[in-house]
Amino acid sequence: MNSATAPAGAPGNQSEVDRTLRAILVDVLGLDHSQVAAFGADTGLFGYLPELDSMAVATLLTEIEDRLTIVIEDDEVDGEMLETFGALLLFTENKHAEG
C-alpha cells in the first residue's frame, strides 16, 4: 500500500484511496487531472487554496464518504487532517482500512 509520503504523480504506485481522493479533488477544485496528479504529500489544501472554503470541504468529505463507503465523524475533522494532501490521504487510508 502506498503511504502518504509517497512521491506524487506515480500512478502505478497509487492506492485505490489515493486515486479516488485525487479524482474527488479534480471534481471539487475543477482542475485538470494532470494538475492534481502533481499534488504531493506537502501540497496545501484547506487554508492554502482559496476556493476550498467550508462548503467545499463539506462537499469533499461527503464525497469521500460516498465513494469509499466510510463515515467521517465531526470530531475527526480538524485543520490538521485537511491542511495537506498527505494528511488527508493518510486519514482517508486509515479510515478505509478500518472498513
Binding site: D53, M55, A58
Partner: peptide
C-alpha cells in the same frame, strides 16, 4: 443529505 452537508460546512467553518 443536502442539510447534512450544510451542517458539516458550518462545523468546519466554526472550527476554523
Amino acid at each position: 443529505n443536502a442539510l447534512r452537508t450544510m451542517l458539516r460546512a458550518r462545523v468546519v467553518m466554526s472550527r476554523e
